[in-house]
Design a protein around this nucleic acid. Sequence first.
DNA 1: CATGAATGAGTTTTCATTCAT
DNA 2: AATGAATGAAAACTCATTCAT
Lengths: 187, 187, 187, 187
Amino acid sequence: MGDTKRKAILETALQLFVKHGIDATSVRAIAEGADTAEGNIYRHFKSKGDLARTIFLDCANTFRSTLKKAVREQSGPEQKIEILVRAMFEFAFKHSREFSYILIANHREEIITRDMLAKPLPKDVFEEALQEGMEQQLFQVSEPTIAVAWIVGMVQRSTIFIQRNITSLEPENVIDETVKAVLRMLK
Amino acid sequence: MGDTKRKAILETALQLFVKHGIDATSVRAIAEGADTAEGNIYRHFKSKGDLARTIFLDCANTFRSTLKKAVREQSGPEQKIEILVRAMFEFAFKHSREFSYILIANHREEIITRDMLAKPLPKDVFEEALQEGMEQQLFQVSEPTIAVAWIVGMVQRSTIFIQRNITSLEPENVIDETVKAVLRMLK
Amino acid sequence: MGDTKRKAILETALQLFVKHGIDATSVRAIAEGADTAEGNIYRHFKSKGDLARTIFLDCANTFRSTLKKAVREQSGPEQKIEILVRAMFEFAFKHSREFSYILIANHREEIITRDMLAKPLPKDVFEEALQEGMEQQLFQVSEPTIAVAWIVGMVQRSTIFIQRNITSLEPENVIDETVKAVLRMLK
Amino acid sequence: MGDTKRKAILETALQLFVKHGIDATSVRAIAEGADTAEGNIYRHFKSKGDLARTIFLDCANTFRSTLKKAVREQSGPEQKIEILVRAMFEFAFKHSREFSYILIANHREEIITRDMLAKPLPKDVFEEALQEGMEQQLFQVSEPTIAVAWIVGMVQRSTIFIQRNITSLEPENVIDETVKAVLRMLK
DNA sequence: CATGAATGAGTTTTCATTCAT
DNA sequence: AATGAATGAAAACTCATTCAT
């Protein structure tokens, strides 16, 4: 089935994009890694940019599903926030390529076009939980969007922190500490 | 004087690197912007990478000085953290190119070599203030390095937030709110 | 029926060849326009060149038949020449794609192979009428072949002239003037 | 001097464009013929299209100068037309590449842009002479532009005729006959 | 008969870097 | 010190053609 090659291309591209950056990854390298001809990539994707965009949407969707699934079983804004932060960390480790790629692609306007921002994004899930907490007057936050920025920023940096082995703390401790810090920050 | 051209090259390169990305900026474009010949850039810098690295060091030093200068006049860890967060926001707006470039370059291992991490970096200034607060048992943080990660992550995301005009809040409000959130998080 | 697809391929190819040029038309574009698969084109034609050649022969034959039919009803060399010039103009407007394609293909040696020049061609019809006029000493021409060149050149340029809207004259006037000019030239 | 290479590129490109067509000529082939690197062609010309356009303008200018020079020494519209037709034939043989290229490029809208039609073109020289003859009521032509189309069409076809060795007539005879035919046509 | 994924050689173009002047 | 022509390797992308299904 032709779908096999398509998947191989997506997988190899994700791997190389994360490892060397999007610009530094040539279409030829992707083709070689996916064991196919360069030209074949252009059968499946209109351009390298299209490929990068498709991967971003895939990753963002996977991430969003993970978060939605995690939050579904919880009641109470605090519990939701805690589980979301933990889910984010878990995703960052179990799907570290997807997570890294989301962060990389986020900085590139040619990949994240304006119309994509209208679609459901991972951050929406956080926003809902925060909104709920604000309505119940549990959180000292004047706007949910900015609080999402804070939380995402904290978790993002913390994962880099763990990955680069900067701290002597165990990953689990970092996660626990971060969860506590996030809740202190909100309340 | 050759120094004038050197400065023009550094300035143009910084501008273009931030606007279009490092890879998407050609040496020719830098030469044109700095009103000099391509070959002349290689008289002042060994390579494009060397140029990118030099700019990073310049930016990081300027940023670090700004933070050091801000913190010098303050006594008390809380005051220091507050002033550092405010200084970081101020730098992000007054020297937006330098700030953006630091963030961009941070993701690129060819530019930020291992030996550069040994040099004094902006985050050191935060770390000192946090250490001081921990010793005085003012902050509920088990390690200063991770708290730096949290704070930097929060501020970084918040600036993107303001720059991209995502919120309806005024920049000043965002800053005030963020300062408060940081302090809640630490205490 | 397979014949339907064959016709669709020929028609689409003719259309695209004239609109964008033969080289700039991809087999894929033809397949899409004819609502078939790329591979299927190679069932009907040996190669893109073969397709281009087949179309040329079709067009040239249609053109020749048109001329032959027109001249059949006339007696007298002058009347024949007049009707031929008019028929050529009519063909250029009613079958503008076929006419354009003949002109385009004429410049390409890979399409018009030497052996095709031996076959009956449109210009033969002109040549016969001229020969007849020369024998009756009505025309001041030393050789019929060169006179065909003159006439064809005049009409060809005049049609381009009309198509590109260079003149303020009505198409009908251009045709009448050209007929008169041709006859003046011959006599 | 760098001008040498530029000229070599122009010359080789003209040669190959005429021999194999513009599309069928690769930039690599031009580079090889001009004994330079592919990349160097892009220092001198923005693109292959730019190169093709530059060559067209060069050829058209040379042709126009030739015609202007020829007509300058003549008085009387008939003499002017005669000398112009002869000059056109001479150009077609002495500068056969330039002449062929003008004809080839004329059919390509991407090369002959609209704004180029506003510039002085070879046909203008014919038009002036015809206008003069019309004012003196020597020529039976209702508009000079269409008569230019006729004359150019006749000469163009006649040169192909000679080049392809279709006739048994000597080139000089073809020219003499064509001159006479043109004058019969106009008067 | 028909499909369209796959191929691989080819295309135009870009660009960091060198070097003669 | 400065220039900018020249280089050559590599980039993204196209396309006629083949072939397994």
